[in-house]
Every structure is written in C-alpha cells, then in structure tokens.
Nucleic acid binder design. Sequence first.
DNA 1: GCAGGGGTTCGACGTTGATCGAACGATTAT
DNA 2: ATAATCGTTCGATCAACGTCGAACCCCTGC
Lengths: 102, 102
Amino acid sequence: MTDLPEPDADELELTTVLSALADDVRLVIVRHLAAAGEQACGTLELGISKATRSHHFRVLRESGVTHTRIVGTRRLVTLRRDDLDERFPGLLDALFAATPAR
Amino acid sequence: MTDLPEPDADELELTTVLSALADDVRLVIVRHLAAAGEQACGTLELGISKATRSHHFRVLRESGVTHTRIVGTRRLVTLRRDDLDERFPGLLDALFAATPAR
DNA sequence: GCAGGGGTTCGACGTTGATCGAACGATTAT
DNA sequence: ATAATCGTTCGATCAACGTCGAACCCCTGC
C-alpha cells in the first residue's frame, strides 16, 4: 500500500474540484506543485499548523486534484495534471494564468 | 438606481469567484445565462424556494460573476463574461467545456 | 529497544453556507 | 384602492469548513 486513496479520473466532479481550489492556502499548494513538481507535504511554509496543512492536503487528494504516494515517512504529492486536463480542459491553465487583483 | 451593487472588474478575486461557481445550483444558473443571455431571476425552475434562489443570485452578483439591473419588479441578470474573461482568461470556457462525470 | 521526524487523527471551537417559511417591499394590473 | 406578481430580508436550523493543540502512528537511525 504505497498510494493513498483518491477518486478515479472519470469520477472527478466539477463542483468538488472547484470547492477544493476555492481556497487561498490550497491554491498556493497547487501552484507550487505545478511549478516545482512532486513535493513532500512539509516542504512549503504555509504559516499554518501541521494539522491544518494535513487537512488541506487531504481535501486536495480526496477531490482528485492531487496524487499522494508514501515513501518512508514522507508523503510525496503531485498534481494530477493529466487527469484534470482530460476532464476539465483548460481549467488549470486558466487558474495559473489568473493574475491577482489590483 | 437601476443597477444592483457589484464589484468592479479589477476587484474580482479568484477564490471568491471559484467559491461562487463551486455549487451545482449556481453552475446551472451560470450555464443558463451563458446559453440564453439576460434572464429574470424567476425564469429557471431550480427546485428550491424563492429565498434560497435569491441567496444564490446574490452570491453570484457579489462575487462579480453576474450583473443585475432592475426593470420594474424584475431583476434581469446577465453573465459578466467580458470582465471574467479579462481577469480569468479561459476560466468560463473551461467550465462550460467540462462534461459531467460518468 | 528507543528516540526523533513526518504526518495523521481526534476532539473542540468559531465561522460560514445552504436551506426554509414567513413577513415585507416595490411595481404593475384591475 | 386592491390584488397579484416578483423578489428581498429576517430569523432559524443544520451541516460543512478552517483552525488548533494534543495525542497518536509509522518509519528510520542510532
């Protein structure tokens, strides 16, 4: 058992994915995964507690946004870009293209 | 005073817009507005009460997704497609392209 | 074995959100 | 004026969410 449970690619629900992405902390995580590739949970400095961070990573995984594999004591997380691009073409690109409000 | 208050185009926040769109009822409304153009609030049969419907239209307007003008006793609602496309290019297209899960 | 680091789980707490019925307000039609 | 239509607002309820500290679990290294 080296992988954590996650929804299949064809089970991804739009509203679930949007809910998962509609959070500033999780958006930071997703952008970082997109830019830097596979990361351990603790790699990012998010200014929140371990428990809260774990919660956000769980939401991302259970919504189907990320994939998590276990290596030793680490959880290595990747963005499920191919699955998301297939189910929701252009969605991730649109999110990453969005500039912050002025 | 023929228009209801709404955020300016350059004030649109990504997480706020995503939250507004991360709801099945509101997604139905937005898709319908995109397909059919300006609509009165009561036009759609959504299977919810007047109060709840009013709530959803308010969330859409306050997040900047829709524009509402008052004509007589009606509230005529439009999708702010140009503003959204400018701030978040490709986002609406991605939403409308998404097919339901199998 | 034992200690330490990386994450998760368990309550708990406060906030927000979806929902409703009922009352209300504003405009139009009779 | 009166009634009807369209929609909002109020108060309430219930569920879900973000957050935390503390306890726990699992693996690795000594």
